[in-house]
Design a protein around this nucleic acid. Structure first.
Lengths: 201, 201
DNA sequence: CGATTCTTTGAAAACAGTCAATCTGTGTGG
DNA sequence: CCACACAGATTGACTGTTTTCAAAGAATCG
């Protein structure tokens, strides 16, 4: 059996839209024609603090992180985005103001970008897209709220355990220190937790 | 000059919709006709863990909290809703599954409820309502994300300070112990922080 | 290999939680 | 009106968790 070994990376987005939304084939094509692929090398910024975020960004390949840097130089990661995830700064996008966050790539990545005005136009023209974006936003909200709940009710160890359950794919691709940052604990604490739990067995 | 001393409590919702949305007078009336007012006494539940949440709930008067109770019996408050705020459990609402949360009143309150199927129908019929709900959801998402950011990047004291800045109205109406719970710290710690900061002056 | 990045470890200090007792204010019923 | 109960806030002593700082140990990559 002959298999096509190389799948154009944009297919990731096509497949995503086809399986997750009610969009027709031609609507999917319209959406894809409205944006463009951007390659982001490891350590390269997609957004820097002070910039304005004007895109919808879907990760086709690789891994991005969204984070802030405080006065002491500590990074605080609020979001990871692997393939099939969205990234961006919604606050800046909505308000048009400058961003407090940085987004950069943890691996060589490829993302699909659609500029805000273009995307808004599409949402108006394609009801199924509008519905999809809404449903997505609902799910995102619920996810962030769950994260709040875990955050205010759990110890460092519990937070890590839940992270492992919820995002096992991330464990292998994201450096431990960054997971610690995402959880709001130090890398040293996370290291000790992991060591601890492996001894317990 | 003669003034009407008593404003029907539903006016709170009318005013809210008129000032915050693009809805026409008649659309506002349609929406109001689609729901009903419910009085909730202090300590009374509006939702209990295990129930399914099927409403959109706008607070006309009083104050509600959404919280979970863990194995040890500790309460973890994820949301407060004063007048002009929405309350509810979006996860249960969207999925139709049972809720992990309780909602109860901290004061004698009045809320405006619109059942899910009715509300969904309204959203389809009234584009301005749909747009408004979306914009609201966007803002909510951004707010929760900011809360995450504060949570993972701040000490107990900083969290409290930000809470005070952001929600000064709540300080006078919500017991301190509950604010502590919302922040993910103990009531004793919050008490000491407050004492500490007042000495510092 | 050398350089860089990431992780681990140790010891001390800071921070926050626990438990129990006390204090304060409020509202209720006798 | 007082006494009492109750909810909420405070305080102290103690414990436990997490951070900090510094150093050393893996792992990765060109």
């Amino acid at each position: 059996m002959i298999r096509i070994k190389y799948t154009a990376v944009i297919e990731v987005f096509k497949t995503y839209l086809k399986t997750k939304s009610q969009l027709s084939e031609s609507e999917v094509d319209t959406i894809i024609a409205a944006g463009h692929i951007k390659k982001v090398r490891k350590r390269q910024y997609l957004l820097q603090e002070g910039d304005v975020w004007k895109y919808n960004c879907f990760v086709l390949k690789g891994c991005l992180r969204t984070y802030s840097v405080d006065e002491k130089g500590n990074e605080h990661i609020i979001h990871f985005a692997l393939e099939n995830w969205w990234a961006g700064d919604r606050a800046s996008y909505e308000s048009g103001g400058t961003s407090l966050y940085n987004i950069d790539a943890l691996e060589d990545s490829e993302v699909f970008l659609i500029a805000k005005p273009v995307f808004e136009k599409l949402c108006k023209e394609i009801p199924a897209l509008n519905d999809f974006v809404n449903a997505l936003l609902h799910r995102s909200f619920i996810a962030v709220q769950n994260r709040i709940h875990t955050n205010i009710s759990s110890s460092a160890e519990e937070k890590y355990k839940r992270f492992v359950e919820q995002y096992p794919q991330m464990l292998t691709r994201i450096p431990q220190g960054m997971i610690a940052s995402y959880l709001g604990i130090t890398k040293e604490t996370l290291s000790r937790i992991r060591n601890q739990t492996s001894k317990d067995r």
